[in-house]
Design a protein around this nucleic acid. Structure first.
Lengths: 139, 139
DNA sequence: CTGCGACTTCAAGCCAACTTGAGGTCAAGC
DNA sequence: GCTTGACCTCAAGTTGGCTTGAAGTCGCAG
């Protein structure tokens, strides 16, 4: 299996070299060797980076991501916890859906202030009721 | 309409007072007056905070959020842009769905390393194909 | 009228996740 | 064999979104 050097990986994954080096440094991904000084990666890493990108966009920290997928694709989280993360994602998906609908509504609604539009209020209320104010951001 | 003082708002919205003061400071919400030194808010603010919470969980910056909903519920973004944000949300929702499915799979799959599991690879590939590596994080 | 506790301001601190800069190394093409 | 340009290291800086701490103010219960 042929290796990719860092530039190649960055180009394909659309990330900055500094980012990839950083990920390597913190052990989120690992290079399989060097060509001169240049880090070389197995093509696997592209899959991992896709996963990382998804995880980030879901709001997981790099820490969490690396615990979920390990650096070898082996999660070191128990099933239960993984299912909990999945459930949290479900909640977040519902929230995002509500937000999306709200945005579309805002784009169309002719009311002078949205706070006065009943449809808007209903959307937001529905949204915040489901999942009950998902407190993702607390330490 | 009766006003809420900061403590009340924080309790109901489940955020720290320092956070609310910060939001006030940057103009994301605004207090309608003072009771002594205490900020007082209109009940509206609870709705706004719900919106802010959703926006944050969608990965929008406070800046973006305030542009989307204004501090009075008036977006100062053109319709087109709002629709684009909504579309971006759609893409993100699809990504999150894929990630959720991947997580559930990881929790169940008996393969020694996920990188070797074809189901896993397919999930990730499908995921990263849709929306083509949503580059939300670039400046 | 005194004490209390929840607020206030302001500056500084903190964390994650990078980016930047200075100064150095290397392999490949001419 | 020399240049070039993409890489390297390491330390320091940056940004967003808060939190913390010190020192002060206020209104209300007792």
């Amino acid at each position: 299996m042929k290796l990719l050097d860092i530039g190649e990986v960055c180009a394909r994954a659309n990330i900055a070299p500094s980012t990839l080096r950083y990920y390597d440094e913190i052990g989120l991904v690992s290079s399989v060797g060097r060509h001169g000084l240049r880090r070389q990666f197995s093509p696997e890493v592209l899959l991992q980076l896709a996963l990382i990108s998804m995880g980030k966009s879901a709001g997981f920290s790099l820490e969490e991501i690396s615990r979920m997928f390990g650096r070898n694709g082996r999660p070191d989280l128990p099933r239960l916890l993984l299912h909990q993360k999945a459930d949290a994602l479900d909640r977040q998906i519902r929230e995002l859906t509500a937000l999306r609908d709200t945005l579309r509504h805002v784009a169309e609604c002719p009311a002078p202030s949205h706070m006065e539009c009943p449809t808007f209020r209903r959307l937001v209320q529905v949204a915040s009721r489901r999942g009950g104010m998902a407190s993702k951001r607390r330490k």
